[in-house]
């Protein structure tokens, strides 16, 4: 269970502190029971699919300004922490 949790934390980019882990693990175990339960179901019907509506290709004129909430910008590009390639 711990391994699953750690892998999920890595993918979800969430830093876990040790104190939280037992509580999360406990709920995980309970929720996994749901998960396993589902595995025994066979012979399920296909789903009916609705159709998505499409939008006309036109640009809308707005005065929307992104609110970076006091983050720095350089020539309107957003400054973000260094990205390792």
């Amino acid at each position: 269970m711990r391994k699953h949790l750690e892998k999920a934390a890595k993918l979800a980019r969430i830093a876990l502190n040790e104190e939280e882990v037992p509580a999360i693990e406990q709920a995980f175990v309970g929720l996994m029971a749901h998960f396993e339960h589902l595995g025994t179901i066979e012979d399920l019907p296909e789903m009916k699919r609705k159709a998505v509506r499409l939008r006309t290709d036109e640009t809308a004129v707005t005065d929307y300004q992104p609110d970076w909430e006091e983050r720095e910008t350089k020539d309107q590009a957003l400054v973000i922490p260094r990205v390792m390639d």
Partner: peptide, 11 residues
């Protein structure tokens, strides 16, 4: 990723 900087930029 501007050279020699400690930040990156997003557009």
């Amino acid at each position: 990723h501007p050279d020699y900087e400690h930040f990156s930029l997003a557009d």
